[in-house]
Nucleic acid binder design. Sequence first.
DNA 1: ACCCTCACCTGCACGC
DNA 2: TGCGTGCAGGTGAGGG
Length: 299
Amino acid sequence: MPELPEVEHVVRALQRMVVGRRIVASDIRLAKLIAPSSRRAFNRKLKDSTIVGIGRRGKFILIELEERVALPHGRTYDTHRQVNLQKAARKQRLALIVHLRMTGKFLYQSPDDPLPRHAHAIFYLDNERRLVFRDQRKFGVMKLVPASRIRNAKGIRDLAPEPFEDDFSVDYLTETLSRSQRTLKTLLLDQNKVLGLGNIYAAEALFRAGISPFAIAADLSTKRIARLHAAIRDVLKFAILHIKGSISLEDGFSYGAAFERFWQVYDREGEPCVKCGARIRRERHGGRSTYWCPRCQRR
DNA sequence: ACCCTCACCTGCACGC
DNA sequence: TGCGTGCAGGTGAGGG
């Protein structure tokens, strides 16, 4: 489902709702969600951990956890001894890395709310509420790693720079494009080259930049690279601003009608271009639908 | 490193 | 009504 702007909104909602909460139990109902780890090990690690922060890297959601400290039991320690033990048993930081893929959603529920269909993971929180991960198509994935190893986790290690950080510069884009003979549409969907776009925003960014999705990356002029760079940031920023503020975890996430109107080419085959009136075209390219205006977007 | 197709799944909209 | 087809916001594997 989501591209970077939608993931950003999910992250913000999670920050508001679950940071500071302790996970009292978890229930993984779909083994492949956390494969190859075992559900038992997964649940054991999560139990009694505290959610200390929520972050994002590209389209990955990072749920930062602090493990409980398991003090040895069955014996009594004097104060002095306990203090030393706690120092030795430093709380482990973990990260639950989540990718929503196409249809993954989080819901924040009251105990009396009915569980939705396709609820594949349930996290019971210390305020009686629960965080539910639902995913109709079962493409979503979760992985638990020590916080120190987030950067090196598979899928995250090779990601391109965050689009709003300084290292996603015109120079970076110039360098990246110059080394590729692929079409722009394909390259923009490659998260290791340009981060955050999906099928919708790649089409929208190219439309804004006035460049054909079929242009070869390495052929772009300096001027067009600069336009594309600005368009990528603009389209992501615009989407983050215009995704409805009313989106809540209770509802899950969906594109509202008001939001869809902002798509200028995506899903508009045959409609007149908002800039020039030409008919928007659609073609399958690299296995996905590509939408563009044949007049505004030249190769 | 690239390209392509297929795979992973379920549900919805469409045409007959 | 049903049944078949194609399509969906993402990515990874496997073959060339």
